[in-house]
Computed example of a mutant assay.
Amino acid sequence: MKKLFCALVMLCLFSLEGFSQDVRLNVYGSYAFADKFDSYWDVGNNYYYDGRIEDGFQWGGGLEYVVNDMVGVEVLYLRQDTNSPTRYSYSGFVDRRTNFDLGINYILVAPSRYFQAPSGNLEGFFGVMAGVVIADLYNPDNGNENNATKMAWGVKGGGILWGSERIGLKVQAQLLSAVQSVGGGFYFGTGGAGAGVNSYSSIYQFSLGGGLVFKLN
């Protein structure tokens, strides 16, 4: 995962090197709100899962190239360590409950549109994000571990208050969604390899926070 992130950063570096006006390092810290998810993929046999992703701290960083005064492109990584209390049922296991340990990693490319305030030390922005989410799931009941990589997208908006020419304070709200075309990617079983979930369910994570912005050039 770290190698993939570094490769994406280097790709943006070489592709935008001749056009970049500013190179910025963004450091993030946000509060991510809880979200519910469910799927009933075999009603006849009463197979289902129903749970939530708990709220918690989300952190990360990104490297951004501001091509001109209005457009920037960022490659970023976000991480959240949380829990997922889930109720599920499948083949012989009825109404099981497990509080899974869940690690969520987003790797995203995020173009943004900037708006300059007349004062000069305030920037507003709005952006979209697209990439992948890598989820690491651990079942404390039996020690089983699994992970899945899915498509992800998001939107964000906020502002940057520049305290100096090189350091600014960013405040933003964002919405991230993991499109879980699960297809057996997660396992909610309590014995053996567990039961693969073959269904569709999307997760939406809304967060509020911000961070620091450093101009590197």
Rank of each mutant, 00 (worst) to 15 (best):
K2Y: 10
K2C: 00
K2G: 14
K3A: 13
F5Q: 10
A7R: 01
V9G: 05
C12S: 11
C12G: 08
F14P: 06
F14K: 05
S15P: 00
S15G: 07
G18D: 08
F19C: 13
D22M: 01
N26S: 12
Y28I: 04
S30H: 11
Y31D: 05
Y31E: 07
F33P: 06
K36S: 15
G44C: 03
G44S: 13
Y47D: 11
E54H: 12
E54R: 15
D55W: 09
D55A: 13
W59R: 12
G62R: 01
L63F: 02
V66S: 05
D69T: 06
V73A: 03
Y77N: 07
L78M: 11
D81G: 11
N83E: 14
Y88K: 11
F93G: 03
R96E: 09
R97K: 07
T98F: 06
N99M: 12
G103D: 03
Y106E: 00
I107M: 00
L108I: 00
R113L: 14
F115C: 01
Q116A: 12
Q116L: 10
A117P: 07
S119D: 09
E123N: 15
V128I: 12
V128N: 02
M129H: 04
A135G: 00
A135W: 04
D141C: 04
N144T: 05
N146L: 02
N147E: 05
A148F: 01
M151V: 11
M151E: 09
K156A: 06
W162S: 05
W162H: 06
E165V: 05
E165C: 06
R166S: 15
I167A: 09
I167K: 13
G168M: 07
K170H: 06
L175I: 05
L175Q: 10
L176E: 04
S177A: 14
A178L: 02
A178C: 03
G185D: 13
F188T: 01
F188H: 03
F188P: 06
A195C: 06
G196L: 07
Y200K: 03
S201C: 10
S207I: 10
G209Q: 02
L212E: 01
L212H: 09
